[in-house]
Amino acid sequence: MDIKRLIIVAVGGQGNLLASSVLGEAALLANVPVRMSEIHGMAQRGGVVESAIVFGDAKSTIISDGEADLLVGFEPSETLRALNKCNNKTVAITNLSPMPPFTVAIGKGVYPDLNDLQEKLRAKTAKLIAFDAVALAKTAGNVLSVNMVLLGALTQTAILPMSVEHTKQAMKNKTKPAFLDLNLKAFDLGYEAAAGA
């Protein structure tokens, strides 16, 4: 089996750790070797969280620059910041709903233009799937399901060696039962959005 490398970047509190834990569980169910590592720059204090997940027969839990097969960004400027993890074969997925860092409010930086941001990401990767995941999460019934929307989108690319069924089963095992229907809906909306991209 080919080794597949996934980078997820998010802002603390966006629920990306749950998304990676669902993917880990899905890999277990699918009998795919998996290992991951997480670096959170004080996530609870609004820092960036980066998860690296490696599927297949590799020992490393780090993904070097330029070596991600798939990049999923929960926040547009963070997706762009992680561009160095990509090469021209990488598929990138980004949420388009911005969460400007506080440095912007105090005048210590300018938030990138969203059109330019998409152009840059599109030009330097094999494919960019960009949509407003927050809007879809709201449609599903809870803004906090952005993580499940993006999980749906990344599953649609079929880059990772786990089926939709495995991932949905993993959602059953790993997310709160009370939110399962909502989460599955969010997943499906993300899946469709990626299919249409």
């Binding site: 204090r45 820092g47 960036v48 400027s77 210590k108 300018v110 990138p112 840059k120």
Partner: peptide
Amino acid sequence: ADTSDVPEIPNRPP
């Protein structure tokens, strides 16, 4: 991926 033409992205310190 060549990031030389990517504009400076505002920092997100904790």
